[in-house]
C-alpha cells in the first residue's frame, strides 16, 4: 500500500513537471515581461517613414512619454510634430491588462479633447502599417500563448512562440514571435489576419541596452505582404527615469503637450 502511494506521487510529480506547449509559451512571455519591468518612465522621439508600393514616401514625427503603472498597463502620451497639419495633436492612452484601454485625442485647432473608442485597435496608426494594437503596451494578459519550437534567426538562438489575441476586436488571428533566448527580447513577429493568412512581418534591429538592463530596438520595420506597403519606425533619444508623474498624463497635460 505504501509502495502504491509512492508510485502515485511519482506519477503526479512527473505530470506536473512535463510542461505543455501552452505553459511553456506563457512562461517565456512571463520572462520577457519580468525582464522588462521596473523601468519607471521614459521619453523618446519616434519617426515613421511610410512607403507605398510605388516607392512614394511620407514622414511622421512624434514624441513619446511613457509611465510604467504597477499592477496595470502603462500610461502613454504621444505628441505629433510632423506632418505639420497635425502638429500638436496628442494621444493619451491608459492601457489596461484585461479591460479596454482608455484613450483621449487632443485636436489643437479646436482645443478639443475627445474620448475615442479604443476598440478601434486594429486600425492603422497615422496611416502607417502599424496598427494601434501593435504599438500598445504589451501586457501578458492580452494574449494566450503556445511554444512552437527552438530555432535560430540569423545565427541567434531563439524560441518561436505563437500568441493569440484575447480581444475579439484585434485584427489578428495569431502572431508568430521569435524571441532571443539569451536576452528575452522579440526579434521578429509575423502577423496573421483573421483569415489566417500572413499579413505583415515586423523585424527589430539595433537593440541597445538602457540602465544596464532594458533592451530597446532602434528600428522596427513593418512590411505588409498583402499591400506591398512598409513603415520604418525609428526611435531616438531614449531617456529613462526622467521623473514623470501621473500628473504628466492627464487630459490637461494633453493640451499642454506641444
Amino acid at each position: 500500500m505504501k509502495r502504491l502511494l509512492m508510485l502515485f506521487l511519482l506519477v503526479l510529480a512527473a505530470a506536473a513537471g512535463a510542461e505543455t506547449p501552452e505553459e511553456k509559451g506563457l512562461a517565456i512571455a512571463r520572462e520577457v515581461d519580468a525582464r522588462d519591468t521596473g523601468w519607471g518612465d521614459f521619453q523618446a522621439k519616434m519617426s515613421m517613414l511610410l512607403r507605398n508600393r510605388h516607392g512614394e514616401e511620407s514622414l511622421r514625427q512624434m514624441r513619446v512619454k511613457s509611465l510604467e503603472v504597477e499592477g496595470d498597463g502603462d500610461k502613454t502620451l504621444i505628441v505629433f510634430d510632423e506632418p505639420r497639419d497635425v502638429k500638436g495633436t496628442a494621444l493619451l492612452t491608459f492601457s489596461h491588462k484585461t479591460k479596454d484601454d482608455d484613450q483621449w485625442l487632443y485636436l489643437p485647432a479646436l482645443k478639443r479633447v475627445k474620448r475615442i473608442a479604443s476598440r478601434n485597435k486594429s486600425g492603422p496608426f497615422m496611416g502607417s502599417e502599424f496598427a494601434y494594437e501593435d504599438l500598445a503596451s504589451q501586457e501578458i494578459e492580452k494574449y494566450t500563448y503556445k511554444y512552437i519550437r527552438d530555432d535560430e534567426l540569423d545565427g541567434t538562438p531563439v524560441f518561436v512562440i505563437e500568441r493569440y489575441p484575447v480581444s475579439k476586436y484585434s485584427g489578428y488571428k495569431r502572431q508568430l514571435v521569435w524571441i532571443d533566448k539569451a536576452r528575452y527580447i522579440p526579434l521578429k513577429i509575423e502577423f496573421y489576419d483573421r483569415k489566417n493568412s500572413l499579413l505583415k512581418t515586423l523585424t527589430f534591429k539595433g537593440y541597445r541596452q538602457y540602465l544596464d538592463r532594458y533592451w530597446r530596438a532602434e528600428e522596427m520595420f513593418m512590411q505588409n505582404h498583402q499591400t506591398g506597403k512598409s513603415t520604418l519606425l525609428t526611435w531616438k533619444e531614449y531617456r529613462f527615469r526622467t521623473g514623470l508623474k501621473d500628473s504628466d498624463f492627464t487630459r490637461n497635460s494633453l493640451k499642454r503637450a506641444r
Binding site: 479646436l110 482645443k111 478639443r112 479633447v113 475627445k114 474620448r115 508623474k245 500628473s247 497635460s253 499642454r256
Partner: peptide, 21 residues
C-alpha cells in the same frame, strides 16, 4: 502664458477653451 505645477495649472492671457462632446 501657462504654468503647470504638480496637479494644478494657471493660464494668463488670451486663450481658447473648448467644452462639449
Amino acid at each position: 502664458w501657462t504654468h503647470a505645477g504638480d496637479g494644478w495649472e494657471t493660464t494668463i492671457g488670451v486663450s481658447k477653451v473648448y467644452w462639449g462632446v
